[in-house]
């Protein structure tokens, strides 16, 4: 392993970071919008967002990326979208479907009595969401969002399959030059783990000590209280890491 390897790989690493940052920002916003669409009062909006979520959760990311690139690449190129843009689009379409479901689950985990309480205070539906429900779940959404970003980091490695010059592609180029696949790919693994492992440790620190079920404060998370809305669980923060979503 030489230092010249690292300076070579850094260029690919920059593209990877760009890819992750851009798609993360878009994904978080899009997922929030889709989550609100899933609980919309309009049936057509609910149906549309539901179909989107179900379909894009079922299509694997590599298939989505290949489909976009090989199937619609020329059309996208005509309107000035490069392979990088397609990779962002693929990552966003894929991860938004998962994260939107997570956000929806969080919002609907708030007890339904709070909707009624807010309504009795004269708040509109939107005001209830904005001032009552969403503030209660933003803390719980943190670890889940971090988890989504880890998936985006891992997913960005697949962008090399559609010719985006990110870290994995630079790695493959280096392998062709040096014939040292094990060392190069291990080095690249270190780069990726530098992005993902710290996130996991920060998330763990945020969600409290592990190995112990700690009921969170707040009326809606009392574990012994009967809950009257579907999909609620005090284990939501824990679930992020136990379910895979790629």
């Amino acid at each position: 392993m030489e230092t010249s390897w690292i300076s070579f790989l850094i260029r690919g690493f920059e593209t990877t970071v760009m890819l992750v940052v851009i798609s993360s920002v878009i994904t978080v916003v899009a997922a929030a919008v889709v989550a609100l669409g899933r609980i919309s009062t309009r049936r057509s909006v609910r149906l549309l967002t539901r179909v989107y979520v179900e379909v894009f959760r079922s299509i694997p990311l590599p298939v989505l990326l290949a489909g976009l690139y090989f199937g619609f690449g020329p059309q996208f190129e005509n309107i000035g979208v490069t392979a990088f843009g397609l990779a962002v689009l693929g990552l966003v379409l894929n991860e938004t479907a998962y994260l939107a479901e997570v956000y929806r689950g969080l919002i609907s985990s708030v007890r339904i009595g709070q909707w009624r309480a807010a309504a009795s205070l004269g708040l509109t539906r939107w005001q209830t969401l904005r001032h009552v429900l969403i503030p209660q779940v933003t803390t719980a959404a943190g670890p889940q969002t971090a988890n989504g970003i880890i998936y985006l980091v891992k997913g960005s490695a697949l962008a090399s399959l559609i010719t985006v010059p990110e870290l994995t592609m630079y790695g493959t180029r280096l392998v062709v030059d040096t014939f040292r696949p094990l060392e190069v790919y291990l080095l690249i693994a270190v780069f990726y783990l530098l992005l993902t492992v710290p996130v996991a440790y920060v998330t763990r620190a945020m969600t409290g000590r592990r190995g112990r079920v700690r009921p969170k404060r707040g009326p809606h998370t009392r574990p012994d209280a009967p809950r009257d809305s579907a999909g609620s669980s005090p284990q939501h923060t824990e679930k992020a890491w136990t379910s895979t979503s790629t």
Partner: peptide, 9 residues
């Protein structure tokens, strides 16, 4: 580490 490793890698 296992969870943070890109599968393709």
């Amino acid at each position: 580490v296992l969870r943070g490793m890109p599968e393709v890698l």
